[in-house]
Design a binder for these strands. Sequence first.
DNA 1: CTCCTTCGAGAGCAGCGCTCTCTTTCGTGT
DNA 2: ACACGAAAGAGAGCGCTGCTCTCGAAGGAG
Lengths: 226, 226
Amino acid sequence: MSNAAQCARARARIEVAAAIKDEARKQLATEGVAKLSLRAVAHELGMAASALYRYFPSRDHLLTALVIDAHNSLGETAEAAQAADVGPMRRWIIVCETVRDWALAHPHEYALIFGTPRPGNTGPDTTIAAARTGLVLIGVVRDAYRSRGVVEPPLPAELRPDAERMAADFAADLPPEVVSAFVAAWAQLLGLVGFELSGRFNLLVEERETFFRHAVSRLAHAVGLV
Amino acid sequence: MSNAAQCARARARIEVAAAIKDEARKQLATEGVAKLSLRAVAHELGMAASALYRYFPSRDHLLTALVIDAHNSLGETAEAAQAADVGPMRRWIIVCETVRDWALAHPHEYALIFGTPRPGNTGPDTTIAAARTGLVLIGVVRDAYRSRGVVEPPLPAELRPDAERMAADFAADLPPEVVSAFVAAWAQLLGLVGFELSGRFNLLVEERETFFRHAVSRLAHAVGLV
DNA sequence: CTCCTTCGAGAGCAGCGCTCTCTTTCGTGT
DNA sequence: ACACGAAAGAGAGCGCTGCTCTCGAAGGAG
């Protein structure tokens, strides 16, 4: 088979798959994941519903593809924001706000990746993409640590083995105290964003951006940033 | 109409509605909210699917009833735990752990009330029930404040109006600094629980209970508890 | 030019939420 | 005691869903 020809076929395939994902993303953004229907996507693309299964073996596989794309989209945004030429503390806040902004701009996609987990969506591809944004934040902490901008938070003895393993896994140059505190901070950051996205700040907090910035700045202190 | 007779009818109605909710809860616990089907519930109860609509006008109304029940169940559990005769700091941790334990015991119900919000589920009944558990925690903070066990956390000037309004709404006796910090802590607590429930601690944190206790104890400090 | 893989279309299945209609049940006012 | 009317259950059916199967039309590979 000719390489160019095969590339033509493969490219067409990739393009159609991308069009399906785009249309699915559009419906996801407007109606939410529950209302995303393969038939509607196919109809909007002018093709039979059954033809869709040539590209995604099931609705769940399509959703998984959207999950990975969403993780990468958020990750890319965070990576771009991380490049700001300011101190670690301000960069921590900037990246956190970027996560919040992305979530507010793509609420249904955020819910898809950080909301109620869909069973059986724990492939390795998903896991790698999911780590991307967290790695950006830990990069900020690393920079702070290198410039002596971190004081180690307390760590119960019982948590030290876990913390050392985590540090070895993805932040070998950071003290386990910081890595453990970071994981907690990451979970709490998602809690803040999810809270706002769920509308639980309605009638409660008006100045949500300031509230968020203040909260994540205290979170930075909890991780050890000064 | 005779009172006793009417009560008999009304009681039967309530009992059937409760049976429907119980069966729905059972299916919710085993299969998750997506797989909860009115037809299956009706079949399990030996009645026609259409008869179910005499009790709940739609699947969404049934889910809303389950949401309110779940909020009250969690709230009751928290209230019971809150009665422990120990200092505020330990009680804060105990209540937080109770929330976590309830979530681990009823993951799908927890996801139903604190996961991705289902659109149009913001009735006043829901809001009242949803506040119940939070009010338990704020009661702990109140006790701490009364026994001079609280140092006011920092509060940006821009957040003061919000904080004062929140304090006036549900904690008039507490300083706005504490109330504002509490709302953030509540969101972050749900973040920690949601993180564990989503399986994001897998291969990361082994000692989850200790990790959680340490995190919420630091959260208590962030609210001002000493 | 033929073969064989790939792709699209259509019919169809089982399930879903929900509505409508018909029948039965049962408490109530006369 | 009897007829009336509200309430409850049953069943058929509508339009939708994800998904499978089969068949015909392309389009590179030999």
